[in-house]
């Protein structure tokens, strides 16, 4: 197993961890953090492929992702603050208004 393979596998592992966190964890903040972890896993795989193929687009992609992620975090934190003010809780179970 060369290091590229190792890195892609690592990215997959981190992605799965993050996904698991998103699906399982009840705390909204932690869910957010897990989302970030998933993004990081994606970035890692991009970088790995970029290095391996010596190409620019992969590297460029990381920048896009970071920009998008920071915007997203800013917005998400704002929304979260509003939600916490309304419900006084960070438990995702509190927010089930779409229940059928």
């Amino acid at each position: 197993m060369d290091r590229y393979q190792f890195l892609v596998a690592l990215a997959g592992l981190i992605f799965t961890l993050g996904l698991l966190g998103v699906v399982i964890r009840r705390n909204l903040l932690v869910v957010m953090m897990c989302l970030e972890i998933m993004l990081n896993a994606v970035v890692l795989s991009f970088v790995t492929t970029a290095v391996r193929t010596q190409s620019i687009p992969g590297v460029a992609m990381t920048f896009f992702i970071y920009v998008a992620a920071s915007c997203e975090v800013a917005l998400a934190m704002a929304i979260m603050v509003i939600l916490v003010r309304r419900r006084h809780s960070l438990d995702v179970g509190t927010f089930q208004d779409l229940k059928g």
């Binding site: 699906v23 995702v92 179970g93 927010f95 089930q96 208004d97 779409l98 229940k99 059928g100």
Partner: peptide
């Protein structure tokens, strides 16, 4: 409708 839990997760 019970599938629509309202839970994002």
């Amino acid at each position: 409708s019970s599938l629509q839990t309202g839970n994002v997760q």
